[in-house]
Amino acid sequence: MAEGLKMDQLKITRDGAPLVAIDRVIPPGRVLTVMGPSGVGKSTLLAAITGTLAPGFACTGRIILNGRDITAAPPHSRRVGILFQDDLLFPHLSVGENLAFGLRGGGDRTARRSRIDAALAEVGLAGFADRDPATLSGGQKARVALMRMLLSDPAALLLDEAFSGLDADRRARMRKLVFDRARARGLPVLMVTHDRDDADAAGDDVIELRPGAG
């Protein structure tokens, strides 16, 4: 099966000591939830897939995305989108410029601008393009971060405690927003969380990482 995100005998070591081992396939539109106590290597697993492992960490095995081996690909050409607990919007860019940063190149000015406006409208933020991201509420920032990531046309979606910063009500709505879009676009989703509710909302595969289980 070539479609989806395949972690083939993926093993991550820290200074030579085993940390995380995983061997799974996430089919398009499906969610794999990874749970476990902090420090167990959940975020490290995501860093291995985005290609941004910190020095001292190493990984063996293969990462295959829609049939393409991206294990050794440079991070910016992997087409793996990621959302963190913090929105990490670029503070020096307006909301629209943040989205333009994500939007893949191509298309003339007007076309790009209208795609950005449409993306904002899609998450109820029509007319926000020229706003300073620092003036947005937490939920609004999270939605901008989501659309910025989706505009970069990723082939897989990683969530690193992406909903932990929101209150219960916003959290449920944001989860639905993210999962709906991932499903609509057929994106495999790898979600790292310590919240059982997140896993239940995904309603899909769950694996628990345990300390020293690598």
Partner: peptide, 11 residues
């Protein structure tokens, strides 16, 4: 992490 995000966005 800003670098991580930018890279994931294709930069």
């Amino acid at each position: 992490r800003h670098a991580g995000v930018a890279v994931a966005l294709g930069a």
